[in-house]
Amino acid sequence: MSPSVMGATGSGKTTFINLASGSNLRIGRGLKSCTSVVQIAQAFELDGRSVTLIDTPGFDDTTKSDSDILRMIAAFLATAYQSGKKLAGVIYIHRISDFRMGGISTRNFKMFRQLCGESSLRNVVIVTNMWGEVSKEIGEAREQELITQDMFFKPVLDKGALLERHENTAGSAHRILRSIIDNQPLSLQIQRELVDQKMDISQTAAGEELNKELKAQMEKHRKEMRMVQEEMREAIRTKDEETRRELEIETTKLQSEMARIQQDAQKLASRYSEEKEGLEKRMQELSQSAREDAERAGAEYRRQMSALQAQLDMTASTSAAERAELIRRIDELQNRRAHGGGVH
Rank of each mutant, 00 (worst) to 15 (best):
F16P: 08
F44C: 11
R49P: 02
R49V: 08
P57V: 00
D60E: 08
S65F: 00
L70M: 05
R71V: 00
R71L: 03
I73V: 10
A75Y: 01
F76N: 01
A78M: 01
S83R: 11
G84C: 02
V90P: 00
H94L: 06
R113D: 00
Q114R: 06
E118C: 02
S119E: 14
G132S: 15
G132D: 15
K136G: 12
K136H: 12
A141F: 11
A141Q: 15
R142E: 14
K154H: 06
P155A: 10
P155G: 05
L157H: 06
D158K: 12
K159W: 02
K159E: 07
L163C: 09
E164H: 07
H174W: 14
S179A: 10
N183A: 02
P185F: 01
L194A: 04
D200S: 11
I201P: 05
S202F: 12
E208I: 05
K212N: 12
L214F: 08
L214D: 02
L214P: 03
K215F: 01
A216M: 06
M218C: 07
K220L: 12
R222L: 12
R226I: 08
Q229G: 12
I236T: 12
E248N: 13
T251I: 04
T252G: 06
D264N: 14
A265F: 05
Q266S: 14
Q266T: 09
K267T: 09
L268R: 09
L268S: 04
A269M: 11
E277P: 02
L279F: 06
L286T: 00
R291K: 07
A294V: 02
R296N: 03
A297G: 02
A307S: 13
L308V: 07
A310E: 14
D313C: 06
T315V: 13
R328Q: 12
I330F: 11
Q334Y: 03
Q334I: 07
N335G: 13
N335T: 13
R336S: 10
G340V: 04
G342C: 03
